[in-house]
Every structure is written in structure tokens, then in C-alpha cells.
Amino acid sequence: MMIRGIVRISIYVAILSAILILLQELLGTDPKALIQTTLLAMTPLALAAAGEALNQRAGMVNIGIEGIFAISAIAGVYMAEVLGNGYLGLLFGGLVGALIGFIMAVVSIYGKADQIIMGMGLNIAAMGITPFLLRAIWGFPGLHLPPKEVLIQRLDIYGFQISIVTIAAIVIAIALHIILHKTYLGLWIKAAGEAPEALDAAGHNVNMIRMITPTIGGFLAGLGGAFMPLDFFGSITKEFTAGRGFIALACVISSNLEPMGSLGFALIFGLADALAPVIAITPGVKESVPYQFILALPYIVTLAVVAIAVKGRKLPRALGIPYSRE
């Protein structure tokens, strides 16, 4: 599994490099800048997708990542400013996400609520809450710029800028891969998704597992959400998430619920995200194609990739089905 994952990642990297070389020829863009932006755009997707892949393996579904992104971002920036520390802001964003994930899990397990509807509800609620909080906290409904001091400093490796959170996202995806495929917890998670009654009969607590994974998934989504204003954009706007929560879900399903695969797809979508503005302002393209169309590129790529990748995917048998003994 590990080796297959590495091979897969290498293939993505190879394809990516080819595209980059091609782009440099065609558009004359600086490949370094493009890679830097790609990795930044990849990070929130990878964090959320790796966590959600783990979560769906346990038979749970959280389609409210978009909502968690928005709420955690505001919470993260707020706490970063209060404490004057961007890292604490990131952590707080993660904790808020974890709390949301946990509450949704409890409501779905013990209240037998439909997880899809709950996730939708969260997304819609977040759409309303974001401008409200922006105005309530910072007095501007449109845009807020956190002070420079609380923004996360990028690492500089021989002139190549990379965020520590990006490195963390890669490490986390690998760690979740190992947990899922090599440890007892992973075995329990997969059993919870495939045959919860068998997990129960073996003397394990199905609902405990099914509360742990949404909490982990929520934490990672929250981290990704807080990362966007505190690192990626350096600002927070009204609709800054721009459907990235849904793109993260596309990573999950395209990867066949594999954390490492999710990372790979996040890379592809990250590239599309980074590329869109570059193409839009390229001379020749700028005049002939409306820029709105180019900016839709990430979403079109998502649609295309999901359409191709989703074929023959085998989802866990008990996905989205609450477990009860009687």
C-alpha cells in the first residue's frame, strides 16, 4: 500500500512537472512562483480531504467541510489577533472544526440525524454567519486584513517559499495512511465502515470510532480553514472559501477514500487553482477569453477529474448508515 501510494504520488509529480515545463514555454510564467502557489492552494484541500477520507472509511460522512472552512477561518483569525499569535490561531481554528465535527457526530449517532442534510445545513448556515461575523467582529462585511505579525511566516529553502502548514499537511496525509492501513485503529475504522456489527461483536465500541473520525476530520478541516486567511491569502473576505470545501470532497471520492491519494488530488486541484489567475492575465488569452471563464477552471477540472476517477469506486458498505443493535 505504502509503495503504491509513493508510486502514485511520483506519477502526479511527474505529470505536474511536465505541465509546468509546458506552461513555462507557453505562458512564460515563473515555475517557482506557480509551484509555491500550487502548494499553498493544495494545503487546505489536502488537510480536509485526508481527514474526511479517514472519516468516510468509518462509515461517516461530513459534507460540511465548506462550512467548517469558513467558520474556522474567522475563529482562527479572531483568536490569532486576541493572542497575537498566528500558530495559536491555526490551532484554535482546528479546535473549532473538531468541535463542529464532534457535535455533528453525536447528533447523527444518538439523534439518528441524516449526515448529508446536517452537512448541507452547516454549509448554508456558514454562508450567512461569515458576513455577519465579519461585520460583528471587525466592522467590515467585505474584507478584513489581519495584522502582519499574526500571519504565519513562510519557510525559505534556498529561495523557495513553503509554508510549514503545507509540510504538516503532507506529513499528516502520510500519518493517516499509516494509521489506516497499519494500526489497530485503522482496522477498527475500516470495520466500522464495512461491517459495524462485526466490529461490535468483536468487542469494540462502534460509536466511539464513529465519533473519533469526524472529530479528527473536523480538526483538519478547521486547520485548513484557518490556514487560508492566516497564511495563504493573508486576508479574509466574504466568500473566500469559494467552494474549496466541495473540491476537498472531490479529492476524497476521487482517491477512493485514501488519505495519500487525497493529497495527490489536492495537488492537481491546487495547480488548477494556482493556474487560473495566471492564465486569465496571459496576453493573448486575456483578450480572447472572458476571465470569468478562466477563473472557473478549478471547478471544471474538479468536475472532469471526479467524472473520470469516480468510476468503479467501492464505498464502505455501511457508509452513512447509523449503527444500532436492535
Binding site: K190, A191, A195, A202
Partner: peptide
């Protein structure tokens, strides 16, 4: 009560390792 997609060995692991301390083992 066997997990259909698991091998017999993996199903045995399900009863072999139990409890909080084995979680990340």
C-alpha cells in the same frame, strides 16, 4: 460477524487487539 472485505487474519486481529492502549499499535 466477520468483516466481509477483511481476510480471516484481519478479522482475527479485530479480536486480538482490544482496548485503548492498542489503538495506535
Amino acid at each position: 460477524s466477520l468483516v466481509p472485505s477483511f481476510t480471516v487474519l484481519e478479522n482475527l486481529c479485530l479480536v486480538h487487539g482490544r482496548g485503548f492502549l492498542t489503538t495506535l499499535k
